[in-house]
Design a protein around this nucleic acid. Structure first.
Length: 697
DNA sequence: AAGGAAGACTTTTTT
DNA sequence: AGTCTTCCTT
């Protein structure tokens, strides 16, 4: 039976079911396979009820992957398993217990963009200088607090500066506002269940009894809130299996703490640990390169990954002239692969930042290669989609002030700032929602449209409702009459959205607006609905985790891109970038290309970046340089061209001269970078200390 | 209140 | 570079 497909270690992991178990699994060591086999074993051999099993992954993609595998292993039975991300599990708990927590059944989930809007409004309301108090920074801070389970009151105890005092006040208002809007944010999906469990022991016990077996994937990426939730739910039966790899921890910016792995044995004294070290994915060349890179990290648990797949091809390194050349090189090579009948879904292009996808996309379009950009921000963040969603939300929950403000004048209805001001005042006075406050004028016309939609929504499907929204609100007319290429794309996107709701309806039977809105807010990636394998994948290194491809191109292997500039100041952040690089390399089964450019235009500035340190860390014998034979020398020359030979020592207050920006003053120094203040309109610039363009005066 | 122009601002990663 | 903001004119 299926156990025969496993190696001894994996088998051991499947068969051990007496208490806490930690599986440390290197990349490609059959982590997911082990987990799914374990679940199959629990169900088929140990006769555990499917509803007693809780399997948690980190991303939707990973959850889908696990569901698919389980389906092929145990068939239809897998459909009744709870396999979800932490956030969607939190959502389930919230749906089942919202009243205990004081929410109404039609609560809604705010995404991070909505959160930002709220923070911006609060900053305005408090009459703060938005330059001094950056909304994004404050939102991130609030989010970190929440993920670390720090309440506003606890935060207040540690405030030392005026700035933090302000953050505290914003935090308090933010929470209040969310609650008033009957809304929760992403972080609440973790925090509220914890609150529920700690304040209502009976509820906790119910769920502990329900989920006798808990399995967590990508354990290295759990943050404090997730860890606490895990501990709470598995405390009674202690059948907790965590799988992870500290070398692949790449979410510390979200509060993930890979030390949760290192601490597992402390937290669960009788825990058993099993190491999976055989890699089934990559050639030894690729694996050696990955090991070469990761061994430069000081913080890690020692593992010895090995493979018997043979040496395979060398890693191909190419230094392009610029980012267009880089993209053309990639496309050229993809074409060659396709000519050799390589399936599209065995090819991936990986990059550090989303902004890099654009050039590749353009070249792919030109070359007529079908591709998909996997990742967030692609679809759901489009204006027309967000507008439509806001209408849906407003129909479902008219207390949702944020959505109302978004669409009350979209398309234009002649409702301006003044009207909204009056409305806000009235709503504040009477302590009612903006929607309720409407009783006259053009805004009443708007309200009537919503009322009509509300009424009609009772008897029609979601897809039909969307059609009505597009018609009644004038969204469609506006786009049709605009008659531009842009408006056409927007219309297409709306059609696409309808096909999503249709799929939703077909898969789930009839879907309520409520269920749809909650589900959709946790899914950032429209690709999850399209299952077309005949396309090349373009994605960030973060979103590729857990996937594998026969052929992998990693672009932008430059200092400042990968590792990213913002990480260069701190050792621990560079180590995280290195883990990220490790993830990128280990996605490749057979062929790996590492690519960078001599010069790159990004965000409107052309920069010349040195080759990524990660390339230098790889043993040269593993790499075949195909940029022409001048390679490494040339890279050296590049560095000499751009940087001073010797370190120049700066201190704050020094006057410097920059060839482009002129005279400036050093205002801050951190590591290899410094902030230099130049005259208006240049302002403060972050610069590399020993760049040739700068000299000390 | 709307539309357009100029100016400012941001540019890591995800649920 | 592209997007978002703000200000000015109509």
């Amino acid at each position: 039976m299926y156990l025969n497909d496993l190696n001894d270690r994996q088998k051991e992991a499947v068969l051990y079911n007496d208490g806490p178990l930690l599986i440390i699994a290197g990349a490609g060591a059959g982590k997911t396979k082990t987990l799914t086999t374990k679940i199959a074993y629990l169900i088929e051999e140990m006769k555990v009820n499917t509803s007693s099993i809780l399997a948690i992954t980190f991303t939707n993609k990973a959850a889908k992957e696990m569901r698919d595998r389980l389906f092929s292993q145990i068939g239809i039975l897998s459909k009744s398993l709870q396999v979800s991300t932490f956030h969607s599990f939190g959502l389930r708990l919230l749906k089942e217990n919202y009243n205990i927590l004081g929410y109404k059944s039609n609560f809604n989930i705010m995404d991070s963009e909505d959160s930002l809007t709220i923070v911006k409004r609060i900053i305005k309301e408090m009459n703060l200088d938005p330059k001094q108090y950056n909304a994004k920074a404050i939102r991130n801070r609030i989010s970190s607090c929440k993920n670390d389970l720090i309440t506003p009151e606890q935060y207040k105890k540690y405030t030392v500066s005026d700035y933090e005092e302000v953050v505290y006040n914003v935090y308090v208002r933010y929470q209040k506002k969310l609650f008033e809007n009957n809304s929760v944010d992403f972080d609440d999906l973790l925090i509220l269940p914890i609150k529920l469990f700690t304040e209502h022991k009976d509820v906790l016990e119910k769920y502990q009894e329900l989920f006798k077996y808990v399995l967590i994937d990508e354990y290295q990426d759990t943050n404090e809130a997730q860890y606490t939730l895990t501990k709470l739910i598995s405390k009674k039966y202690r059948n907790l299996t965590c799988v992870g790899d500290d070398s692949q921890s790449i979410y510390s910016f979200r509060g993930a703490n890979y030390k949760n792995i290192l601490n597992f044995e402390n937290d669960f004294k009788d825990a058993k640990t099993i190491l999976l070290e055989q890699n089934y994915r990559s050639t030894s060349t690729i694996l050696d390169a990955a090991n070469d890179v990761i061994k430069n990290n000081k913080q890690k648990k020692d593992k010895n990954l090995w493979t018997n797949r043979g040496i395979g091809e060398k890693i191909k390194y190419y230094k392009a002239y610029n980012e267009i050349d880089e993209a053309q090189f990639v496309v050229r090579n993809i074409k060659e692969l396709i000519d050799k009948d390589t399936p599209y879904n065995e090819i991936a292009v990986l990059y550090r930042t989303n902004a890099q996808s654009r050039t590749i996309e353009e070249e792919m379009l030109k070359a007529n290669i079908p591709y998909r950009v996997v990742g967030s921000f692609y679809f759901y963040s489009r204006k027309e989609i967000k507008d439509l969603l806001a209408y849906l939300r407003l129909i479902h929950n008219s207390d949702d002030n944020i959505s109302l403000l978004r669409v009350i004048n979209t398309p234009k209805r002649g409702i301006g700032l003044k009207t909204i001001d009056n409305l806000t005042k009235k709503a504040d006075e009477l302590n009612i929602s903006l929607y309720e406050a409407i009783d006259k004028g053009k805004e009443l016309v708007f309200k009537n449209i919503i009322e009509k939609l509300k009424e009609e929504s009772q008897n029609i499907t979601l897809t039909e409702l969307i059609d009505k929204i597009l018609n009644y609100t004038g969204m469609k007319d506006e786009l049709v009459s605009e008659d531009s290429i842009e408006s056409e794309i927007r219309l297409e996107n709306l059609e696409e959205f309808k096909s999503i709701t249709k799929t939703f309806e077909e898969e789930e039977g009839i879907v309520s607006l409520e269920d749809f809105l909650l589900e959709i807010s946790l899914i950032s990636d429209v690709e999850e609905y399209r299952d077309d394998p005949n396309r090349v994948s373009l994605m960030t290194v973060h979103s590729v985790k857990g996937l594998e491809f026969s052929n992998v191109f990693v672009i932008g292997m430059e200092e400042g891109i990968f590792p990213h500039v913002n990480s260069l100041q701190s050792n621990s952040e560079v180590e995280e970038e290195r883990r990220l690089c490790y993830v990128a390399i280990t996605r490749a089964k057979d062929n790996l290309w590492l690519i960078n450019t001599r010069s790159r235009t990004l965000y409107g500035m052309t920069q010349v970046n040195p080759t990524s340190r990660f390339i230098d860390e790889i043993n040269k014998d593993l790499i075949d340089n195909i940029s022409g034979n001048k390679e490494k020398e040339e890279i050296k020359i590049d560095i000499e061209e751009v940087f001073h030979q010797e370190e120049v020592d700066y201190s704050i207050g020094d006057i410097v001269y920059h060839e482009t920006f002129g005279m400036g003053k050093v205002v801050n120094i951190s590591g290899e970078l410094m902030d230099v203040a130049f005259k208006h309109p240049i302002g403060i610039k972050k610069l590399m200390k020993n760049h040739k363009k700068i000299s000390k005066v």
